[in-house]
Design a protein around this nucleic acid. Sequence first.
DNA 1: CACTCACGTGGATACGTTTTCAAGCATCTC
DNA 2: GAGATGCTTGAAAACGTATCCACGTGAGTG
Lengths: 353, 353
Amino acid sequence: MERRATIKDVAEAAGVGVATVSRVLSGGSASPQTRERVLAVAAQLDYRPSALGRNLRQRRTGGMGLLVPDLTDTFHAQLAEGVLACARSAGEPVVLGSTGGDPEQESELIGMLLEQSVDRLIAVPSGDEETWAPAIRAGMTVVFADHLPPGPAAGDDPAATAMTDLMRLDGLPPAPQSRPLDVPSVVADDRAGIRTAVRYLRGLGHKRIAFLGGPGQDRRVAAFREAVGSPVDEELVVFGTGSRDSAYAAASGLFQSRPDLTAVLAGGNVLGEAAVLAARELDLRVPRDVSLVMYDDVPWAELCSPPLTVIAQPGRDMGYRAAELVLRSGGRRPRGVVLPTELIIRGSCAPRR
Amino acid sequence: MERRATIKDVAEAAGVGVATVSRVLSGGSASPQTRERVLAVAAQLDYRPSALGRNLRQRRTGGMGLLVPDLTDTFHAQLAEGVLACARSAGEPVVLGSTGGDPEQESELIGMLLEQSVDRLIAVPSGDEETWAPAIRAGMTVVFADHLPPGPAAGDDPAATAMTDLMRLDGLPPAPQSRPLDVPSVVADDRAGIRTAVRYLRGLGHKRIAFLGGPGQDRRVAAFREAVGSPVDEELVVFGTGSRDSAYAAASGLFQSRPDLTAVLAGGNVLGEAAVLAARELDLRVPRDVSLVMYDDVPWAELCSPPLTVIAQPGRDMGYRAAELVLRSGGRRPRGVVLPTELIIRGSCAPRR
DNA sequence: CACTCACGTGGATACGTTTTCAAGCATCTC
DNA sequence: GAGATGCTTGAAAACGTATCCACGTGAGTG
């Protein structure tokens, strides 16, 4: 309850100036005896430098912000754990925000972080480039995780959108001229993961494979389209909006409208959850009636019966790497890091009957 | 990239003093015309007050800290979502830390928060009262969620521990004289939840019911002991340390050492996960060979086959309430709030064969 | 008219730190 | 021995805000 000791108290008690105390504690130069005395006094007074003063002085808050759409999405929780682990070992705070997948809330949270002078930010983005422009302009060091924000809506032509998605495939991250936002990112190798899964299903004899996607999964959808080949049956590519309800609705609608499909690729664990639920509700047996592959390996994937075959991406590692990236923002920083995925075969896929 | 406008800029541009600007923006008194002009200028300059200056001035950081053992425990993720929702609507930042269930890390994180002058903290505690004393002494407003920290180890006598656990049962939170830490809390009605579940299992004919506990579940264990009645078979009460591995080990060990048990009550979703996994590994069928009730309702509980019967506690609400509590710390604050649980019967329990 | 009172206002101060700057001092070099 | 060089040191100036206090002005009251 009593006031904490300030640097001034330490200085007086040690009979030196505040500047000296600051230097000693920040690793500056000082004579051995002075250093020792200051350190002793500081320890005795239980002095801890106030981040407030320091932050104001250097006009920036330490640590980093972390914005994810939804923490109850286990992948985001894993990502967050990775970020927290890195931040903890660096002794830095992380201020967390959950956007609910809503660009508007995301925008507000960015504003809040700006107000706090948090100038480092890791985000699983919900909004598009327009949403993120203010943050970049304000000089924030941003690192995107899992995926990048889509370019601003350039019209409603779905064909055009599909085209740009396809164009984006060949290089990661996309070419700068088509993407003014020059922000490093930590993503999984969606393309390889999806391709492997599609090949696996193909190898089991499946022809009509559906993709159940969510927001921010443009690259996965594009990879899916690329993997299945030219004439993509558009009815087999459906989307939820991010909520569990909408994911369930999308999955259920898919199963009902296309009873001829034999395999589903779910673009994330919430989607996968919905797929399992919807399949059960419609009395479709996995994998007898429908084979299922889910993006994201989560603990409960093993609990399902049968256990779910998944495309594992290293959520925790991604978070850790993103945090490293955003902290070591000095010097040149890599354009982006792509982490490998792994197809983990369990029991949710069977040969087409 | 360019410097943000400060209150001084606004004052000059509006031809008033900084004090006036501050007053207008903080809701103090000012003449209507002055107010209007200041507001206009502020908007035009895109002025946003710097939290740094404000924080330093009032010697405290806004917002709140949130400490949980592990975000990939879905209950903690739900709790965090609740906290974040409340904080967001209040426009306040929340700095998050994950302790891994380790009191030492918890202690370090508390220190970090103190350094940041974060004076409001919501925690799912890992350490005991001793760990928390520094935070309280420093004048932090602390609210515990899910459970309270145990008193300092008062010896290794398990009987004594059991006794105090039992003593604690009659009132929630425990009597002040036995608990010097006077901290409000938001917890679920563990006692009623456990009792209901035990009665339910009893009603199905089960006699040998095991409890699979984790760290911080003293109250649940005590409630379990109380509900099963006097001669508690101690071999049927086992604990994991918090990690998934140790939970699995505990569950597996339990099933192997006591093949005669017919029902298991898992004290949390990580424990429940382990129980399902261990049972499957040992070829025990749920619910034919063993009935299972899990504390925590999580999305994947419905995905299991059979779907898991659970004691649901409102994780999100608990987080929201805790955040409210810690924010409205002015005036008298309630000793603690206890939220109801609900037994959700799905398919993981069957009559004893 | 003089006095008080309320209110709007701005100057000044403090919050705790880092950093710049110049001064003090000892040592080294020519 | 005088000048240069290096190192340690403390005073002081920021950083952006909230708040205390004093001042001035207008209205209201005796």
